[in-house]
Amino acid sequence: MNHAQRFHGTRVLVTGGSRNIGRAIVERFAAEGAHVAVNGVVPGEAEDLAARLVEAGHAATAVPADVSDPDQVERMLARVDAELGGIDVLVNNAAVPLLGRVPFLELTLEQWDRQFDVAARGTYLSTHAAARRMGPGAAVINLSSIGATKAHRSAAAYDASKGAIEAFTRAAALDLAPHGIRVNAIAPGAISNTRFQALDPSVQAREVAPIPLGHAGTGADVAGVAAFLASADAAYLTGQVITVDGGLGVQARQASAEIEIDPSVGGAA
């Protein structure tokens, strides 16, 4: 099906949108005609991506902000209002990259708080600010992880923050339904990103061995689901979590207990 201009006139904000999964989502919406507001916290990244999209003939605006800061979030949404004229789709992708495993007894309060500040608090703040500006037919899409329901060793803060996002998705879906706003989530599994691609080929092979489809996913795989959830084809879906993991989670027993989760959901956060 040709979706070339499916989102023409649609205003989309993607948090953590300057790299990895977030970037793929930004590029997918831009390619289908949306005006995309690119959020990121790493200096210059959101601006660079937005400029590249504009050069390619797409509509894009950079809105850098730390989504864990309520004042910055409010300013970000005010800028989206001013430059895009409103918001129709919010993708809450920002998260703290999981760059290494931390056994629970070594996990610090600061590490725990940072995960929740960006992933859970950021999702709440951005949704709360956006929903007050949205009208009927709008959509919120949250990025979770397979770790929300199937725990990973030495990833308690990450997994717990993603579990919170899934609970929030269901609760917000109920409360926002009377306003015509749908709220859904995506739970990616192993995704080939910059970290994955830097691994030794033998390590990559071990990582994908338990995946029924036989390979890691890509940001484009996640972006396609995000586009579906934002589209009219998903008009009767709300409160749902769509798993994008190549079949990893449906097995009774995985071949390895140490499959890596994607650490870059929201990689710019």
Rank of each mutant, 00 (worst) to 15 (best):
224 G>K: 03
195 R>F: 14
113 D>I: 05
20 N>S: 14
151 A>H: 05
14 V>M: 02
260 E>H: 11
51 A>P: 11
213 L>N: 10
95 A>P: 09
265 V>N: 01
94 A>S: 03
106 E>D: 15
105 L>P: 11
195 R>S: 11
237 L>F: 15
205 A>W: 04
167 A>L: 12
72 Q>L: 02
89 V>G: 00
116 F>L: 15
23 R>V: 05
178 P>Y: 05
142 N>T: 01
153 R>V: 14
57 G>I: 04
5 Q>N: 13
63 V>P: 06
35 H>E: 13
41 V>P: 01
38 V>R: 02
135 G>A: 03
201 P>V: 10
89 V>R: 01
172 A>F: 00
214 G>R: 06
102 V>M: 08
23 R>S: 09
255 A>V: 10
138 A>F: 00
31 A>M: 09
54 V>Y: 03
20 N>I: 05
94 A>N: 01
64 P>Q: 03
29 F>L: 07
104 F>I: 13
138 A>L: 02
177 A>R: 11
193 N>G: 15
23 R>M: 09
46 A>K: 04
235 A>N: 13
242 I>L: 09
250 V>G: 14
70 P>V: 04
259 I>Q: 14
14 V>E: 02
58 H>I: 06
200 D>F: 08
168 F>R: 00
252 A>T: 13
140 V>N: 01
211 I>M: 06
102 V>K: 05
236 Y>I: 05
119 A>Y: 00
236 Y>P: 07
127 T>M: 10
251 Q>R: 07
156 A>Y: 09
115 Q>A: 14
83 E>T: 04
232 A>T: 13
186 I>R: 00
65 A>I: 03
8 H>F: 13
172 A>V: 04
144 S>F: 03
239 G>V: 09
224 G>Y: 00
160 A>Q: 05
158 Y>H: 08
232 A>L: 11
62 A>P: 03
190 A>W: 05
194 T>W: 15
150 K>G: 10
78 A>T: 13
54 V>D: 07
264 S>E: 14
217 G>E: 08
188 P>W: 01
1 M>P: 13
266 G>Q: 01
198 A>F: 04
18 S>I: 00
101 R>M: 14
266 G>M: 01
132 R>D: 11
235 A>S: 15
167 A>K: 06
249 G>H: 09
16 G>R: 01
222 V>D: 03
200 D>Q: 11
4 A>I: 10
207 E>L: 12
241 V>K: 01
43 P>S: 07
42 V>E: 12
66 D>H: 06
108 T>S: 15
261 I>H: 02
67 V>D: 00
45 E>G: 07
157 A>F: 06
108 T>E: 14
73 V>S: 00
230 A>I: 04
214 G>M: 08
142 N>H: 02
219 G>F: 04
247 G>F: 03
83 E>G: 02
